[in-house]
Write a protein that binds this DNA or RNA. Sequence first.
DNA 1: TTACTTGCAAATCATTTGCGGTTTG
DNA 2: CAAACCGCAAATGATTTGCAAGTAA
Lengths: 152, 152
Amino acid sequence: MAVQIPVKDTDAVETRIEDLCAKRGLRMTEPRRVIARVLSAAEDHPDAEALYDRVKEVDPTISMATIYRTMKLFEEMDIVSKRDFGDGRARYEPQSGPEDHHHHMIDVETGEVLEFYNQELEDLKKRIARDLGFDLVDHHLELFGTRRKKQH
Amino acid sequence: MAVQIPVKDTDAVETRIEDLCAKRGLRMTEPRRVIARVLSAAEDHPDAEALYDRVKEVDPTISMATIYRTMKLFEEMDIVSKRDFGDGRARYEPQSGPEDHHHHMIDVETGEVLEFYNQELEDLKKRIARDLGFDLVDHHLELFGTRRKKQH
DNA sequence: TTACTTGCAAATCATTTGCGGTTTG
DNA sequence: CAAACCGCAAATGATTTGCAAGTAA
C-alpha cells in the first residue's frame, strides 16, 4: 500500500518528488505539484494517459500537453525515468537513485510487471561494457515471460 | 564485408531470408524478394525508412506500406526481430536463431551499435526469471555508454 | 515585472489500414 | 480463378509545438 499522501491540499507534507523539484530549482506551479503527487503516489508504471486520468481527478483543467511537457522536464532533471515495455507508449516511474535501481519482469499473458534487482547482473553489465571499451551511462533490461505452471 | 548478393536478378542464388520465406510457405512476390535481399545484405540495424531507401534503389515502385507490412509478417514468422534502441523508431535485423543470440551496446555519442554475446548473461537471465517463477520467452537488453577515453 | 508555464488546437512522426486494382500459385 | 498482395492516400495513436493568455518569483 502507498503511504497516504494528500494530492490536493497545498499545505500538506511535501512528497519526495516535490522535494526534488525544489532542489533542482524548478518553478512550482499547480499542475506540477499535482503531477508530482500523483507520481509519488503511483506504485505502478503509468503511461501518459494513465497519469492524465489520475491528474484530472484532482484538477480537471490540467492538459495532456502539460503531462508530456512535465514528464520530459522531470526526465531531464532525473526525477523520473522513462521505460519502454514494448507496447507503443512510454511508461514513467519515479527515479529513486542508484540505491533502488531495478529491472522489470513482464508477464506476457497478463501484462503484469514485477520489479527486481540483482547485484550479479549489475556487476556483469558493468564488466561487459568495460570489456567492450565503454563506460556505462544507462541500460535497459526487460525480461518477458510466462508464469511457470509446473516445474520440469 | 557482406557476402556479395545480387539484389535484383531473379535467378540468383537464394538468400537465407528468401529460403526462410519458402520454408514458411510465404507467397514470394517481387517486393518481398527485394526486401528479403536487402535485409540479408544489411549488416546494421535499419529502421523502416532506411529499408525503404535501400529497397527503392532496386525497385522504386515498392511502397513504405509494404515495408511495414512485410516487416510485421517477417516478425510473426520469426524471420526478423524488431529492436528498440530508444529513439522513436523500430529497427529490424535478420533473426538468426538461438545460436546467434546477442545484445547491443549503443554508443550514446555516435549512435554506433555494437553487438555482443555473453553466456554468463544468458544463464543469469534464465536463472533470474526462474527465481521469479517465470519461464523466459523473450528479453531486451541494451547497454548505453560512451567510449572509454582513459582507464582509471 | 518578466521570464517561465499552460491550455488548446494544430502539427509531427512512426506505423497502420481501407480500398480498388494487381499478382501468385 | 481465388486468395493474397500491393500502392496510395487517408487514418491512427503517441507525442510535440506555436501561440496567446496566465502565473510564480
